[in-house]
């Protein structure tokens, strides 16, 4: 990752969502992006130019735009029409973003479009987040990385976030994922944990 004086940036055309610029580098705000926050918490996270990424829950494409600055191609899946309009705007200006309007819980709808990827990144507000990741793991090459941004409050507000995280980890391990690390995104995002695992 590119750091300028301790500030995470990506190199690309600016003006996507009013982000601050440092010279020709775009500042990647950890308070607005969970992946940005994860990079601040774990400095070993790396995105490489030859990587192919399947990004579930692309929303308005702010994080997607930063990821696209680093990697080869991003398949960005989003289901809601309003964010999708912004995402389309982002992909018009970034030739390595493939926008897919579909429900991440139903990969069969976009299976004919997506190739094998090195990184599966998921950030969706759904109660069955582990199940969605597992259903999409068919696109992940073996040895590839899954980064699951767990919104514990979407799974069950009544339960302790820690308990939800443990359960999710167990679910992923059960299905052949090796948990590399998990990280709470405090103070940038509350009740959000990043689970980083490798497909066996």
């Amino acid at each position: 990752m590119i750091w300028i004086d301790g500030v995470l940036v990506s190199r690309g055309e600016g003006g996507v969502y009013g982000e601050r610029m440092l010279g020709n580098a775009r500042v990647w705000d950890p308070y607005r992006s969970k992946l940005g926050a994860l990079c601040y918490k774990r400095k070993r996270i790396e995105l490489a130019p030859d990587m192919r990424v399947l990004y579930l829950g692309a929303a308005h494409g702010t994080t997607v735009s930063h990821v696209a600055d680093y990697v080869g191609v991003v398949y960005a899946v989003e289901v809601a029409p309003r964010p999708m309009q912004d995402l389309l705007e982002v992909s018009r200006r970034r030739k390595n973003v493939v926008p897919i309007m579909a429900d991440a819980a139903q990969p069969e709808a976009y299976a004919s479009l997506v190739e094998e990827v090195d990184l599966l990144y998921q950030d969706v507000a759904q109660p069955d987040q582990a199940a969605i990741a597992l259903r999409n793991s068919v696109f992940l090459k073996s040895g590839g990385t899954l980064i699951l941004m767990l919104k514990t409050r979407s799974i069950d507000v009544r339960r302790e976030p820690e308990a939800v995280l443990d359960e999710t980890k167990a679910e992923l391990e059960d299905r052949g994922f090796e948990i590399m690390a998990s990280e709470w995104l405090e103070p940038y995002h509350h009740d959000h944990a990043a689970v980083i695992c490798r497909k066996g």
């Binding site: 029409p81 999708m84 992909s91």
Partner: peptide
């Protein structure tokens, strides 16, 4: 390849929106 695929995906998305 990516160019053609993007063309298809963007058209699909615009129609669905």
């Amino acid at each position: 390849y990516i160019g053609k695929l993007r063309g298809v995906c963007m058209l699909l998305a615009e129609r669905r929106i």
